Amino acid sequence: MKPAFASPEIEAAFAVSDPLAREGLLRLRQLIFETAAETPEAGRVEEVLRWGQPSYVTPETGTGSTLRLGVPKGARFALFVHCQSRLIPEFALAFPAWDRFEGTRAVLFNDPEDVEPLRHGWLIKRALTYKIRAPLDIPA
């Protein structure tokens, strides 16, 4: 079941000109809501706009780090995380050589088929529980 958009402004943020980018963004959005439903410790996930991008926060529990969806310069679409978090380095350690990254702030995609529930759902769950879980041991 596809969740309704939180507002017309958020729905409009998905109206990108590239149909593959739109499809990919919508797949990521669906995966965020599905993962949140399977992660009760995160509590309710709220869809808001941050910097003009659809963003996903955990307002009631405060357990998460914000996730954002958008269209970067170097790819069709992306899943953004807080750049000062450990999320992208942990993801790269857990799934080496599987993705393209933009520094420590995003996983980049060119094809909606590249969105995989297992590995990208892992990243989403780690973001939704970022403030209540132990970090991975990442070598310096």
Rank of each mutant, 00 (worst) to 15 (best):
M1T: 12
P3C: 09
A4R: 11
A4P: 06
F5H: 14
S7I: 06
P8N: 02
E9C: 08
I10Y: 00
A12W: 00
A13Q: 02
F14E: 06
A15H: 06
V16G: 03
S17A: 15
D18H: 00
D18Q: 05
L20T: 13
L20V: 08
L20K: 13
L20Y: 09
R22S: 11
E23D: 15
G24T: 11
R27I: 01
R29D: 09
L31V: 02
L31G: 07
L31R: 08
F33A: 10
F33R: 05
F33K: 05
T35D: 08
A36K: 04
A37W: 05
T39D: 07
P40A: 08
A42P: 03
R44A: 10
E46V: 04
E46L: 14
V48R: 14
L49D: 03
W51L: 08
G52S: 09
Q53V: 03
P54V: 04
Y56K: 00
T58E: 11
P59T: 09
E60L: 15
T63P: 08
G64M: 09
T66V: 14
T66C: 10
R68C: 11
R68V: 06
L69N: 01
L69C: 04
V71D: 10
P72S: 07
K73N: 03
K73A: 12
G74S: 15
A78G: 11
L79A: 08
H82E: 13
C83R: 13
C83M: 01
Q84Y: 06
L87E: 05
I88G: 06
I88C: 10
F91S: 07
F91C: 06
F91E: 00
F101R: 10
E102N: 14
T104R: 15
T104G: 13
T104L: 11
E113P: 00
V115C: 08
V115E: 05
E116K: 14
E116F: 10
E116D: 15
P117D: 13
L118R: 12
L118T: 12
L118V: 14
H120D: 03
K125F: 00
K125H: 05
A127Q: 02
L128V: 07
L128Q: 09
Y130L: 07
K131N: 14
I132Y: 07
L136F: 10
L136V: 03
A140T: 11
